[in-house]
């Protein structure tokens, strides 16, 4: 099993020292019986299946169903359960915050890289960058401008620094002119970045 795994990694370019050490560590853990390559692969596959499309479905449902939205905001875990999205008890608690005509939310983790992986998958590189982590709290409007997002000066901007056991997902505002659209069509307007709060949902 370990041999197959090593062969998977043989490429034209030699691996970097650190990458090589990561493969070495995994191989040693497998030799000691602490994990198997299959277990690791299952976990890789699980994370690969988690994409912002999951979050987008949830947002679109909240846009079309006010009762669902109320449950999503008050009891996120059970509302997600209704959609067949199960969040295990040992993962951090997910809270959804709603953007309104008065308040816009932006999410960051200044201490590391806490991110609602259960609904968005692995975070993008910029979310983990030192520049984003330093300025999202002190200059959120400037940061959003870098993403091409202009927030009205009379809008209240609330930044969420997820320092602890909570993860935050932004429920973006439903764009104008989407009254007749289906839930599926709406979900396509919901971008990953709009669920982090650096941008709005797409216009139809």
């Amino acid at each position: 099993m370990t041999t197959t795994h090593v062969e998977d990694h043989v490429h034209d370019q030699p691996m970097s020292e650190v990458a090589l050490r990561s493969v070495a560590i995994e191989a040693l853990l497998a030799e000691k019986g602490l994990l198997t390559a299959d277990e690791v692969q299952r976990q890789v596959d699980l994370m690969d299946r988690r994409t912002p499309a999951d979050g987008a479905k949830v947002v679109a449902r909240a846009w079309v169903d006010p009762d669902f939205k109320a449950r999503l905001l008050s009891d996120t875990r059970s509302a997600l359960g209704e959609m067949g999205i199960r969040i295990s008890e040992d993962t951090p608690h997910l809270t959804v915050v709603e953007n309104t005509e008065e308040v816009h939310h932006l999410v960051v983790c200044t201490l590391c890289s806490c991110y609602p992986r259960m609904l968005l998958g692995r975070p993008p590189d910029w979310y983990k960058s030192l520049a984003y982590r330093s300025r999202a709290v002190s200059d959120p409007r400037g940061v959003m401008a870098e993403f091409g997002t202009a927030v009205a000066s009379d809008m209240q901007v609330d930044v969420l620094d997820s320092t602890a056991d909570m993860r935050y997902l932004v429920l973006p505002r439903r764009p104008e002119g989407t009254e007749g659209m289906s839930e599926e069509e709406l979900a396509r307007l919901v971008t990953r970045d709009s669920m982090v709060g650096v941008s709005e949902a797409l216009a139809p």
């Binding site: 990458a19 990561s22 493969v23 277990e39 690791v40 976990q43 890789v44």
Partner: peptide, 12 residues
């Protein structure tokens, strides 16, 4: 390797 080291952490 990045996806696997992420996964190894989760498994451990």
């Amino acid at each position: 390797w990045e996806r696997r080291v992420d996964a190894v952490h989760q498994v451990l």
